[in-house]
Design a protein around this nucleic acid. Sequence first.
DNA 1: TGTTCTGTAATAAAAATAGTTACAGTATGA
DNA 2: TCATACTGTAACTATTTTTATTACAGAACA
Lengths: 136, 136
Amino acid sequence: MNSSHFSISLHILTLLDQVKGQLLNSEYIAGSINCNPVLVRKELANLHKHGFVQSKEGKGGGSTLAKSPADINLGDVYWAVKQKKLLGESKNEPNPNCPVGRQITQHLNDLYDEAETALVKSLSAKTLKDFSASFK
Amino acid sequence: MNSSHFSISLHILTLLDQVKGQLLNSEYIAGSINCNPVLVRKELANLHKHGFVQSKEGKGGGSTLAKSPADINLGDVYWAVKQKKLLGESKNEPNPNCPVGRQITQHLNDLYDEAETALVKSLSAKTLKDFSASFK
DNA sequence: TGTTCTGTAATAAAAATAGTTACAGTATGA
DNA sequence: TCATACTGTAACTATTTTTATTACAGAACA
């Protein structure tokens, strides 16, 4: 991963949990995150695609959690939100004429996959309920 | 982390290991990575600062490993190379007037620190020697 | 003493990320 | 039924981050 997708998504999910089923609209959420409402709606669209939230269109609409916070673990959020490699290359086209260049992409990918698995395992130890409960 | 610092550094270290003590110059290394030699020199400067490589200036100069590849573990490389948060925010200034916004940065940081620790533990299981040995 | 490197700074180009504007479609309720 | 307030999404712009380029002082070598 990278960027702030995970942070923003978890922020959204936490807010939705804190209001216990109340619908929150993208402008309110954006106000808490301090970002653009369209960015929130995009993030919500992704969370919706992965079954974490439900949205209601139209006047008085907004979003709410689609399942119990105890059933949302942060490792699953990670996978849902992930858009690109955790550790990795923006550009990466090593020289195929060099023995190291030719093979390194595969070896790095293997290494990163292992490392990412360890990271997700750590995240998976916590649910949204746990995370949200740490807010006073 | 993020970006390609880790990939590039590990690529450099692998090349240096493969040539067993021979000096490699930044242009050669850049040729294998397929990037700019100045980028390699900056990355080498950082690796040098952390004691992984030695460099020799002047004609016929170049770089070589400063310690045995068996004594370079990939977790240490990770820390040396890390320049910013693994999972995190480019911009992140949540609303201090919102209970969630006010506390989330700290909670996210705690979460990320744990996850990063798990990731580094995984990386630390391998040395440069191990990694380099997987190249045929 | 000319050549070939490193080290580093300053700048430019390219890529990625976030913000903005715009608008069709949906639900609500007066 | 019509004004209002949302979502969903696209197109575009601005900003930030990353990478490449140029430049040059200083070091080592032949």
